[in-house]
């Protein structure tokens, strides 16, 4: 196990290095120039040069890369060109918002997908299965921004049940005097609609994955044994079939969870959700190299770690797997 872990961590380190180099180069070959965004065109040339020097942009690319890597190894992600604040602070400010929305949506979708998937596989060929599969696929193929806007129009604009966007009501937070419960309720009120839309449009993925995995498991001989043993239908379905069908779900869920950290760029835009996805777009558009690089590297690290965690959980769930 330790040998395996060591091996995997080394693998992750190599992957990360290659990825950082790629991201670094990609941003620098992108047309355009951070100086044009940061610097006022009416500035005198000497001031421009001075500022470029301060940002470290006068150095050749390879030495910029070496400096960047050195700082990274010390845990220093640099300063955002745009905000003028440490990149780390900006990311840590946005990330919890993204986690709140996307991680809860992912967990609810997968929980729902698991519960429905095992049931429709168990009752294969019934109207119940056809209806759920059809509905799931229908919502799965809907374009989220379009659907999101329609939902906002119906529930927020026409019916006035939910806010039009954002994560909080600023007046409530700045005025003071509001209790903690009122503040939590305010966030939940903002969260409800995007969470509902995201879950509705994504549960089918998990459901169909669970369904096919479950159908495969139901063909196994040990399921026949379980039924022959006189176990109740529910025990056969949940303890014997679903437990085994869960195995392929773990990897997919871990990946899905890690990708959810990036936040849907489109979703966050539609619902004006102040998360990481929205930040990545603006950082890229603003030539904010340190922020954009850090965000990408950060997400890649999460994806790689999630894979490792999935493998470890896998070994725990399936006694046949030992590293």
């Amino acid at each position: 196990m330790y040998r395996y872990l060591l091996h995997r961590i080394l693998q992750i380190a190599i992957t990360m290095f290659l990825l950082i180099a790629m991201v670094f180069i990609l941003f620098r070959v992108m047309p355009g120039d951070p100086a044009s965004m940061v610097l006022d065109p009416k500035m005198p040339p000497e001031a421009k040069a001075l500022m470029k020097k301060q940002l470290g942009l006068d150095e050749p690319i390879y030495s910029q890369f070496i400096i960047y890597m050195k700082n990274l190894l010390h845990g220093d992600l640099g300063r955002s060109f745009y905000y003028g604040r440490p990149v780390y602070d900006v990311i840590m400010e946005r990330l919890p918002n993204t986690i709140l929305l996307f991680t809860s949506a992912t967990i609810i979708s997968w929980g729902l997908g698991y519960a429905l998937g095992k049931r429709i596989a168990w009752r294969r060929g019934t109207r119940f299965e056809h209806a759920l599969t059809f509905m799931g696929l229908l919502f799965y193929s809907v374009f989220l921004p379009w659907f999101g806007l329609i939902m906002i129009w119906i529930f927020s604009y026409r019916l006035g049940l939910f806010p039009l966007g954002g994560m909080i009501t600023p007046e409530l937070w700045t005025a003071g005097g509001a209790g903690i419960i009122a503040l939590v309720l305010d966030v939940l009120h903002h969260l409800a609609l995007p969470l509902f839309v995201l879950t509705l449009l994504s549960f089918a993925g998990a459901m169909l994955l669970m369904r096919s995995s479950m159908l495969e498991t139901l063909r196994e001989d040990y399921i026949l044994t379980a039924r022959a043993k006189g176990l109740s239908e529910k025990v056969v379905r949940d303890k014997h079939a679903a437990r085994n069908a869960l195995l392929p779900m773990v990897t997919a869920l871990a990946l899905s969870l890690s990708f959810s950290m990036s936040g849907g760029v489109l979703t966050e835009t539609v619902f004006s959700w102040p998360g990481l996805g929205k930040e990545i777009v603006s950082a890229t558009l603003n030539y904010d190299y340190p922020l954009a690089q850090a965000a990408f590297i950060f997400l890649a690290a999460i994806v790689l770690m999630a894979n490792l965690v999935a493998d470890i959980i896998y070994a725990y769930l399936d006694p046949r797997i030992r590293y």
Partner: peptide, 13 residues
């Protein structure tokens, strides 16, 4: 009953 494919008749987990 003892099944035909007793090899796979046990649940692996």
């Amino acid at each position: 009953m003892v099944f035909q494919s007793a090899m796979n008749a046990l649940n692996p987990v």
